[in-house]
């Protein structure tokens, strides 16, 4: 009787694992989250330096974002962070997939990417339009909110922890809507610190000691 029970349990476990493996992308590397966070913090430090470099006096923190040069430099900075994060993420994820003998570009990966890109592109384009009109202060909250929505959207195609991260990003974005002017700080928390924290969490949970 005991042996039979074990057999049925094995069967159920196998079914569950097959369902999971066939519908979720599980090669996502936690380390890529950590690296993305590091890039974001460096990018934020650079942005801080760019914005406040002419700020000698200890009077008001007068932020001059009016100059097109500064704006362009900041956009370039953000794009550089994004590109570096994506490339590192792709590299690390490819490495993890190879180790696990899974293919990188399968149906699960496509689902993940497409569903990530829909909210992300919407947010990106909206941000660019608003930037053109001079609504600089709203950009940081908006990018955080749309990034959070994108993460919640893809959480059903990968690790469930991503959903929680997405919800926190949305909350952070909404809070930063109230404290406009501290956008860079919220940005550094949302894209830097949270990425590092969740990247480490997922690395320890799914990768460490399992390779």
């Amino acid at each position: 009787m005991m042996k039979q029970q074990q057999e049925y349990l094995n069967e159920i476990t196998e079914i569950r694992s097959l369902m999971e493996r066939s519908s979720r992308f599980l090669s996502l590397s936690g380390l890529s989250g950590v690296m993305a966070g590091v890039y974001a913090l460096l990018g934020a430090a650079f942005a801080y330096w760019t914005i406040y470099q002419n700020d000698y006096q200890l009077v008001y923190r007068r932020v001059d974002l009016g100059e097109t040069n500064t704006i362009n430099l900041l956009i370039l900075d953000a794009l550089l962070v994004l590109t570096l994060s994506l490339l590192t993420g792709l590299f690390l994820t490819h490495r993890k997939a190879k180790k696990a003998g899974a293919s990188l570009w399968d149906k699960q990966a496509r689902q993940l990417l497409i569903n990530l890109m829909i909210p992300l592109f919407t947010g990106g384009i909206l941000s660019l339009i608003l930037l053109q009109r001079g609504y600089v202060g709203i950009i940081a909250p908006l990018t955080l909110i749309f990034y959070g929505l994108a993460l919640v959207n893809v959480s059903k195609y990968t690790f469930t922890d991503v959903r929680q991260l997405g919800l926190i990003e949305i909350a952070l974005g909404l809070i930063s809507c109230v404290y406009i002017g501290y956008g860079l700080l919220f940005w550094a928390i949302g894209f830097g610190i949270l990425h590092i924290a969740y990247g480490l969490l997922m690395y320890v949970k799914y990768e460490k000691g399992k390779q």
């Binding site: 079914i15 097959l18 369902m19 066939s22 519908s23 149906k107």
Partner: peptide, 13 residues
Amino acid sequence: RVRLGVMSVLMVN
């Protein structure tokens, strides 16, 4: 096992 496996993955895809 194989048939059970096929049905499992076709349930979620």
